[in-house]
């Protein structure tokens, strides 16, 4: 695979380019708007941990990064999920802007949508249903886009991003929902071979995304495609009470979320189903055993959302110090 094309320049050239400056100003407004939206709805911002004895195993094919923590093997966070659930014992509604590191497979280096180091706007809400969480995600994305259109017209112009691209999103029409099963059928109809048991592949996501004019949800992923913390449906065993939010115009996945599994025995069994050894989740399982709240939540990839809002070719353009998988960079 040729990775020499379309890669970030050196740090000085990248940081001082008008494009990067415009992107980072758009992103700054997005972060301000996200905090505004969530704080107004009673969410408390927490600062997430960066290392811990265990992290989210649910990243597809990505390697975790080991840290030698005084002789103990710790991990850099691949996502904040375990800490988000635990944090609900402090507050009912929390969010973080969480840094994540995932050593993605090298084949992701030219997808234009993977970074080894990225951030998520991570939200968790005790007692919430999946639909509650989807409502917050939808409102949040709408608010962020609206603020950027209101406040960053000059930067969007520098980037060549026509604000009319958001007309449908800002029209007030709700985001469409479709099940994973229906999305697979749509892809088959488009002649794309997509497994019904697996997460929608990157090419398939881009195909579905290209046909949409505003973001849309895909729900009910099959068990076996996601981590142990996505709750299995009581009504429809084998399917998860989860969702992805996909951007239109071919930009693909922005966000994953779910109603969470919080029951101890179910979590242990699900850990085994995802090939995990429960022994390494000691602190988390001890908390779960004593009881953590039922919840729902999601994580929005900040750089991916920035790519969509700013209309960028590649997600690395949305980072001041981009780490494209496999590419050595500061």
């Amino acid at each position: 695979m040729d990775t020499s094309q379309n890669l970030p320049a050196g740090p000085r050239e990248h940081l001082s380019s008008p494009t990067t400056r415009a992107v980072l100003l758009v992103q700054h407004t997005m972060l301000t708007a996200a905090r505004e939206y969530l704080c107004d709805r009673g969410f408390t911002e927490l600062l997430p941990p960066i290392i811990g004895p265990v992290t989210d195993p649910g990243a597809r094919g990505a390697k975790q990064v080991d840290v030698d923590y005084y002789g103990h093997r710790y991990k850099l966070m691949t996502s904040a999920i375990l800490y988000k659930q635990a944090s609900l014992t402090a507050f009912d509604r929390i969010f973080c802007i969480a840094p994540n590191v995932r050593l993605e497979p090298l084949e992701t280096s030219n997808t234009d949508r993977h970074l080894a180091e990225f951030h998520q706007i991570d939200v968790e809400w005790a007692g919430a249903s999946r639909e509650d969480a989807m409502g917050v995600a939808e409102g949040l994305v709408g608010h962020v886009v609206r603020r950027v259109v209101e406040r960053r017209a000059a930067e969007l112009e520098v980037l060549g991003r026509d604000p009319d691209a958001f007309a449908d999103l800002l029209s007030g029409a709700t985001f469409e929902h479709r099940t994973h099963e229906a999305a697979v059928a749509d892809l088959h109809a488009l002649g794309h071979a997509q497994s019904a048991d697996a997460e929608i592949d990157w090419e398939g996501e881009a195909m579905l995304s290209a046909k949409a004019s505003r973001p849309f949800f895909v729900t009910d992923y099959p068990k076996g495609s996601r981590g142990f913390y996505d709750r299995e449906s009581d009504q429809r065993p084998g399917y998860l009470r989860n969702f992805d939010l996909l951007a239109p115009e071919g930009y693909g996945e922005l966000c994953s979320g779910s109603e969470r599994e919080h029951r101890y025995a179910q979590i242990v069994a699900r850990m085994r189903e995802t090939g995990e050894n429960p022994a390494k989740y000691g602190w988390y399982l001890a908390m779960v055993r004593e009881g953590i709240p039922a919840s729902a939540g999601f994580g929005i990839g900040l750089e991916r959302l920035t790519r969509y809002v700013a209309g960028l070719d590649s997600v690395w353009q949305a980072s001041a110090y981009p780490k494209v998988p496999g590419v050595v960079a500061p």
């Binding site: 094919g61 497994s195 048991d197 068990k223 085994r272 189903e273 995802t274 090939g275």
Partner: peptide
């Protein structure tokens, strides 16, 4: 520890994660 469901889902996860 394996049950039918654990084996089935571990295989599916392998296919999902390492296509």
């Amino acid at each position: 520890t394996f049950t039918e469901e654990i084996l089935r889902q571990q295989i599916r996860l392998m296919r999902n994660n390492f296509p």
